[in-house]
């Protein structure tokens, strides 16, 4: 598991998201003002670009059909009781640069999905 330097913090405006491609991963990184969070840039509903959504507290609303996903847990909060979730990526900021941690693809996704349905 490696921390990957993504971009300067100033490139992601407050309360907005930006997408980035790292290898086969397309990641949406959000600036919540006091911290950064990252999830997969694809809504579990129709694959909508979550980085383009409106941030509501610690959630993001997909611009296509309004599904609401929690940026911290990765769970879909609306529609309710769906037990669907997106992949999360650990984020940290060092010297004004946003870093994202990516683990090996297949295994990582499996773990996440199991956690979500549990």
């Amino acid at each position: 598991m490696k921390w990957i330097k993504i971009t300067e913090t100033s490139n992601i405006p407050k309360r907005e998201g930006r997408s980035v491609k790292v290898g086969s991963h397309e990641i949406a990184i959000f600036n919540l003002g006091d911290r950064f969070l990252a999830i997969q840039n694809s809504c579990p509903h129709g694959g909508g670009p979550l980085a383009d959504g409106i941030v509501s507290g610690n959630s993001v609303v997909c611009p296509l059909h309004g599904w609401k996903t929690c940026l911290e847990s990765g769970e879909v909060q609306r529609p309710k009781d769906l037990q669907s979730c997106v992949r999360r990526y650990p984020v940290k900021v060092e010297e004004g640069v946003v870093l994202v941690q990516i683990e090996a693809t297949a295994k990582g996704r499996e773990t996440q999905e199991r956690m979500c349905t549990a």
Binding site: K5, T7, I12, K21, I102
Partner: peptide, 17 residues
């Protein structure tokens, strides 16, 4: 209004994943 308004962010380092 900001440098990444239209531009896709490119990671500062690449990695094979």
């Amino acid at each position: 209004v900001n440098p990444t308004q239209f531009v896709q962010i490119q990671p500062m380092e690449t990695i094979a994943l």
